[in-house]
Amino acid sequence: MIDLLQLVVAGLSTGAAYGLVGVGFVAIHSVTGIINLAQGEFAMVAGFVAIALLGAGFPLAAAAVAAVVTVAVLAGVIERVAVAPAAGSSAVVYIMLTLGVSTTLKATALLVAGPQPRALPAFTPGVLDLGGVQVRPQDLWILVATVIAAAALYVFLERTTTGRAFRACAEQPVAARLVGISPSRMSTLSWVLAGIVGAVAGVVSSPVFQTDWNIGLFLGLKGFVAASMGGLASIPAAILGGLLLGVVERLVAGYISSGLQDAVAFFLLIILLVARPSGVFGRTGAVARV
């Protein structure tokens, strides 16, 4: 029983990071129809920025916030410079474009930071013993950060005018345009939001996953599987999907074979694509919803 709880705790924290990255896929896809292959790289860049600032003498909290802001701005700039000019292109063009962005970010990170993985220190050192279950405080940080980021995004989308405009763009792009909402502004906004959640994931998970130039591929793939569980259309479903994926991975490793752990995500992805392309949590034939 203790073992089960221990595995679930580890799975939840890993899964929360997957979920956050997944939310980034959803934010961009629901508004623009683009699948952003550079989503995992947002996390990678944020990790490196935070590590660099910490190394330059900034306190950890300031470094973390500055990293998130930097990546949010970077995401907005990428949208303006690389994506917006191709407005109206087919899905394949966008896939190649974002693949190019991803490759550029990776190559830059490799040149600047080198091939060695680095890590932020754990935000709170030590280990908590909760009735026999050993919990790293960083696991809690990841979960808390995910809840806060998801809740903030939810409040923004449900309670603010800009958020409502954003949703309108996702659900009824034509009608939204008719009432004066600018799709191009909303597109930029979606990239900034995706940058923020990706960056948060990258910063809080750095002490556990470590940050290296290639971590974006790992996070991006797992985040994509998480987002696919909601058909790339629902933020809560992406978070739930991430948590589910994280827990299933750990349980498979613990009870079946640790060699199969990384096959789980891809196995789930294939099943999903074949059986329920609209997502486990999505309704078949439902209108895109944020």
Partner: peptide, 15 residues
Amino acid sequence: RPLVVLLLALALVAA
């Protein structure tokens, strides 16, 4: 959507 998702899966592999 399913088509896009499939394309993406391919692209991820290519990535």
